[in-house]
C-alpha cells in the first residue's frame, strides 16, 4: 500500500507541483515554438511524452550497466534513438503534424526535460518508478503546452482545434500566434502560476536555467556563477 502511494506521488508531482514547464521552467523552446495551435501543441506534448517514458524505462533498466563517467553521452544515444523512432512514426502517419513541428521534432533530443529526468531520476531509480515519473512529467508537459496553445489559438486565430469561435474569429489578434505573442503568453502564464504558488505558500518559479540543466555538474560557468546568483536572489527576496 505504501509503495502504491509513493508511485502515485511520483506520477502526480510532474503534473502540478513540479510541472516541468510552469514550475521548473524547462523545455522553453518547444513550449514557445509549437504552441501556435492546439493541434501542434498536443502533437509536440505527446511526441515528447512518448520519448520521455521510453527513454526513462530503458535508462533506468541500464542504470547499473552504464559507467557514470560516460552516462550523459549514453543517455543522449538512448534518447536520440527513441526520437528517431517517433520521428519516423509521425512522418508516416501524420505528415501534416510533421510539417507543423518541423525542426522541433528532431530537437526533442536536446529537450532539457528528457535529459534532465534521465539524469535526476531514471539514472537512480527502478524501472517502474521511472516509467511512472516519465508519464507524469509527460502529462504535465502536454498539459502546459495545451494551455498555452489554447490561449494562443483562441486569441490569435479565433479558433479552437481548428473550429472557429463566433466573435473571435472575425477579430483575431494575430500577434498572439506570432513569436512575440509566445513570449507574452508564457510570461503571463508564469505570473499567474507564481501568484497561485505564493498564495499556497510555495516558492515562486525561478529562472533556474542553469540549475535545472543536466549539464550543470560539468559546467564551469554554472559553478562559478552559482554563489553570485544565490546572493542576487537573497537580495531580491
Amino acid at each position: 500500500m505504501a509503495e502504491k502511494k509513493s508511485l502515485f506521488k511520483e506520477f502526480s508531482k510532474g503534473i502540478v507541483i513540479e510541472n516541468p514547464v510552469l514550475r521548473l521552467v524547462l523545455g522553453t523552446c518547444p513550449t514557445l515554438a509549437t504552441t501556435t495551435s492546439v493541434r501542434s501543441a498536443l502533437g509536440m506534448g505527446l511526441a515528447a511524452s512518448i520519448v520521455l517514458v521510453c527513454s526513462n524505462i530503458v535508462i533506468s533498466a541500464l542504470r547499473k550497466v552504464i559507467p557514470s563517467k560516460v552516462r550523459i553521452p549514453a543517455y543522449i544515444v538512448v534518447i536520440a534513438s527513441f526520437v528517431t523512432i517517433v520521428q519516423m512514426l509521425v512522418k508516416a502517419f501524420t505528415p501534416e503534424l510533421d510539417e507543423q513541428l518541423g525542426v522541433f521534432l528532431p530537437l526533442i533530443v536536446v529537450n532539457c526535460i528528457i535529459l534532465g529526468r534521465a539524469e535526476a531520476f531514471a539514472g537512480k531509480n527502478p524501472v517502474l518508478a521511472s516509467a511512472v515519473d516519465g508519464l507524469g512529467m509527460g502529462i504535465g508537459f502536454t498539459a502546459a503546452l495545451f494551455l498555452m496553445g489554447t490561449v494562443r489559438e483562441v486569441l490569435g486565430a479565433g479558433s479552437f482545434l481548428g473550429m472557429s469561435i463566433p466573435f473571435l474569429s472575425q477579430n483575431p489578434m494575430l500577434i498572439f500566434i506570432l513569436p512575440p505573442g509566445g513570449f507574452f503568453v508564457f510570461g503571463m502564464l508564469m505570473a499567474c502560476v507564481n501568484k497561485l504558488a505564493e498564495s499556497r505558500g510555495k516558492p515562486r518559479a525561478q529562472l533556474r536555467g542553469c540549475d535545472a540543466c543536466p549539464m550543470a555538474a560539468t559546467c564551469k560557468l554554472h559553478n562559478e556563477a552559482a554563489p553570485e546568483q544565490a546572493n542576487g536572489e537573497e537580495a531580491t527576496a
Binding site: G182, F186, M190, N194, L207
Partner: peptide
C-alpha cells in the same frame, strides 16, 4: 518580478 517580466521584455 523575475521570470514573467523577463519574458514580457523578450516579447
Amino acid at each position: 518580478r523575475g521570470l514573467p517580466i523577463t519574458l514580457v521584455a523578450a516579447s
